[in-house]
Simulated scan of single mutants.
Amino acid sequence: MPAEQLELKMAARNVNLWYGEKQALFDVNLDVFDRSVTALIGPSGCGKSTFLRCLDRMNDVIEGVRIKGDIRLDGEDIYAPRVDPVQLRARVGMVFQKPNPFPKSIFENVAYAPRIHGLARSKTDLEEIVVKSLQRAGLYEEVKDRLNEPGTGLSGGQQQRLCIARAISVNPEVLLMDEPCSALDPIATARIETLMDELKESLCMVIVTHSMQQAARVSQRTAFFHLGKLVEVDETSKMFTNPTDQRTQDYVTGRFG
């Protein structure tokens, strides 16, 4: 779907970021649209994960990081002093490269965030949220008889779906995924990609991926990063068949990267 038919969800303007003295992002401008998947691609160390972490202020926890620019969620500045990063991360969920379930039961992994954010009024409410989140993450049928067993006992692909269930348990508006399939086998990867396809019906999603095939399969828009700069962003089909910039062309055809 062309960008003009989609609703703008997040907008980044002139985002610059430094790790100490070293600048990692240079004047990044990117619009992210609701109910669609935006893929960030580019060689290792080009700034895609750094930029992704700007969107939920995960870089705040890294010492020596300085950020300049403007990032808005529904028009609100997410770096404004009054914004509580914890509340922001309930609205902008994150799934990491390596599945990282808590050392708790499957049930408690999913119940944790709704409980601390006060989303459940009763035990029944909480159970409903957990079941619904596991269903949305395509995991409930596989784990429904062992909800009290540790989440760490699941397979890698199941653990990653558990982390997705955990991230969506608080009904985020945006879901960020940092190479969510890089540690998974092809079958588990296909399950996660199907899941992304389903979740985008109700969410804005931004994924970082090293796999060009994955970007082509799951995203509607693709942004190409190189040396900390956003080179270009366009509809995924155009980015892979007819990019504007020679550097994008060289990267997607495998000439470098």
Results as ranks from 00 to 15, higher is better:
176 L>P: 06
255 R>G: 06
4 E>I: 04
179 E>A: 07
110 V>E: 07
106 I>A: 05
116 I>D: 07
15 V>K: 05
181 C>Y: 13
23 Q>A: 06
130 V>M: 12
214 Q>C: 01
120 A>T: 05
91 R>C: 08
15 V>L: 08
255 R>C: 10
42 G>K: 10
108 E>R: 08
148 N>S: 10
182 S>N: 10
52 L>S: 11
72 R>W: 00
20 G>L: 13
108 E>C: 00
254 G>C: 02
134 L>Y: 14
40 L>H: 09
135 Q>R: 15
17 L>T: 03
77 D>G: 09
229 K>L: 02
163 C>Q: 05
90 A>F: 06
171 N>Y: 08
27 D>S: 15
237 S>L: 02
18 W>I: 01
198 E>V: 03
48 K>I: 10
90 A>G: 10
241 T>W: 01
125 D>K: 03
61 V>W: 07
72 R>G: 05
128 E>G: 13
245 D>F: 09
219 S>I: 06
185 D>G: 10
83 V>A: 12
186 P>G: 04
15 V>G: 11
236 T>P: 04
66 R>A: 09
241 T>E: 14
9 K>Y: 01
110 V>I: 13
109 N>E: 07
232 E>V: 00
34 D>S: 12
116 I>Q: 15
161 R>P: 09
89 R>S: 07
181 C>I: 11
156 G>Y: 14
65 V>D: 06
217 R>L: 11
152 T>W: 02
101 P>M: 02
33 F>H: 14
12 A>C: 08
149 E>T: 11
255 R>D: 10
73 L>S: 11
235 E>L: 10
215 A>I: 10
10 M>G: 03
252 V>G: 03
45 G>Y: 08
118 G>F: 06
61 V>N: 13
151 G>A: 01
67 I>F: 00
136 R>K: 14
253 T>G: 01
75 G>R: 13
52 L>G: 03
172 P>W: 04
146 R>Q: 11
8 L>M: 07
221 R>K: 12
160 Q>F: 02
15 V>A: 11
99 P>A: 15
49 S>W: 01
61 V>F: 15
204 C>R: 02
145 D>Y: 11
76 E>W: 05
134 L>T: 12
213 Q>P: 00
75 G>C: 14
124 T>E: 15
201 E>C: 03
103 P>Q: 03
125 D>E: 14
246 Q>W: 08
227 L>K: 15
132 K>L: 14
60 D>R: 14
52 L>C: 13
244 T>K: 15
132 K>E: 15
15 V>C: 04
8 L>D: 09
50 T>R: 05
16 N>I: 01
177 M>N: 10
54 C>H: 00
92 V>L: 08
19 Y>C: 08
170 V>G: 04
93 G>E: 03
138 G>H: 04
77 D>V: 10
100 N>M: 14
167 A>F: 05
179 E>P: 09
147 L>E: 04
223 A>M: 08
33 F>I: 01
47 G>Q: 14
173 E>A: 14
39 A>L: 12
140 Y>G: 08
34 D>Q: 11
16 N>R: 12
63 E>H: 10
194 T>L: 05
34 D>Y: 01
243 P>V: 04
57 R>S: 05
117 H>P: 07
167 A>K: 08
200 K>P: 04
73 L>M: 13
67 I>C: 01
170 V>N: 13
212 M>N: 15
165 A>I: 06
59 N>W: 04
66 R>P: 02
